[in-house]
Simulated scan of single mutants.
Amino acid sequence: MQTALVLSGPPGVGKTTVGWRVFDRCIDLELAPAFADLDLLGAAWPPPADDPHQARLKATNLALIWSNYRAAGHRRLIVAGVVETPAERELLETSVGGPVVICRLDASDAELADRIRHRGRETGDGVDHLVRRASELSAQLTADDISDYVVSTADRTIDAVADQVLKRWVP
C-alpha cells in the first residue's frame, strides 16, 4: 500500500485545494488521513545558498510531522508541494520511510495566471513574478516529468479532480 501521495505542480494549479478535498474523501473512506503543505514546512528565510527551495528543510520537517501523525494512528499522508527533481523525490521518500506517489496537477499558463491574479495572496510585482514562475515551472515539470500520473485541473470542479486523483492512488 502506498501511504503517501504528493500533489505537485506549478503555483496556481490547485495543489492545496485539491489536497484538502482528497483529505476529505479519505476521511469519508475511513483511511485515517493526514495532510501537510510543503510550502508551510519550508517557510523560513533566508534559504541556504545550496538549497534555494528549502527542499531539505521541508523533508526534515515532513519526517517529524509524519512520525507524529503515524504515532497518532494516521495511515495515509497527503502532501501538497512542488517536486522538481528526482533528488527531491528521494528526500520525500526518505522522510516518509518508503515510496511516494506523485500526482502532477496541470493547467494552461493562461489559467494559472488567472488563478494567481484572483487569489489575492500576492501583490504588486510579486504577482507578475509568480505568474512567470508558474509558466516556467509548468514547462519544466512537463519536460522533466517525475510524476507517476498527471491530472488536469483545467475547467473541472475540485470534486472531479479529487475523485480522479484518489481513484489512481486508492484503487
Rank of each mutant, 00 (worst) to 15 (best):
L112E: 00
P47D: 14
R133D: 08
P99Y: 08
G73M: 00
A113T: 02
S152G: 13
D51V: 03
D148C: 03
S67C: 12
V127P: 01
A32Q: 13
D28I: 13
L91R: 00
T16F: 08
V170R: 14
P46R: 00
G12Q: 00
A160Y: 07
E90Q: 12
G42R: 04
G97V: 00
V82N: 06
P86S: 00
I146D: 02
R56P: 10
D163M: 10
S8V: 00
L112F: 11
G19W: 07
G19D: 03
T17R: 02
L91W: 02
A162K: 08
D155K: 15
W169T: 09
A160L: 06
P171V: 14
A72G: 09
D28M: 10
V83D: 04
T157R: 15
T123Y: 09
V6E: 12
A71N: 04
A139Q: 07
A139N: 12
D163W: 10
V96Q: 05
S152M: 11
H129K: 04
D144C: 12
H74D: 13
P52L: 08
T94F: 11
L31T: 05
P11S: 05
A107Y: 05
F35I: 15
A49W: 06
Y69I: 11
L130Y: 02
P46G: 01
A107K: 04
L41H: 01
R168E: 14
P33W: 10
Y69D: 11
P171M: 14
T16W: 05
L137R: 02
Q140I: 09
V127M: 02
S67W: 15
T17C: 10
V127L: 02
N61T: 11
R76P: 15
I158C: 15
L7E: 04
R156K: 15
R132H: 11
S8T: 12
A44S: 13
L57I: 07
T16V: 05
A49V: 14
E122N: 13
A59I: 05
L92T: 06
R115Y: 02
P10A: 08
R168F: 11
V13Y: 08
I158N: 09
G42K: 04
K167I: 13
M1C: 12
L112I: 03
A36G: 11
W169L: 08
D39T: 06
G124C: 00
T157M: 05
C103Y: 01
H53D: 15
S135E: 11
E122G: 10
Y69N: 10
I158R: 14
L57W: 07
P99E: 13
A110L: 12
T153M: 05
V161C: 13
D37A: 15
G98V: 02
Q140H: 09
I146G: 07
E88A: 10
V79K: 05
I116M: 00
A59D: 13
K167T: 15
A59S: 07
A134W: 04
T94W: 08
S138C: 08
T94E: 07
Y149K: 06
G126K: 06
P10T: 05
D163Q: 12
H118C: 05
P48G: 04
Q2I: 15
L41I: 07
F23Y: 14
F23R: 13
I65M: 14
K58G: 02
S152W: 10
D145M: 04
G120Y: 01
V82P: 03
D128R: 01
R89C: 00
I65P: 12
T3L: 10
A113G: 03
V161F: 11
D37P: 14
H53M: 14
A63S: 09
R104G: 03
D159L: 05
D109W: 06
V82D: 02
L64I: 07
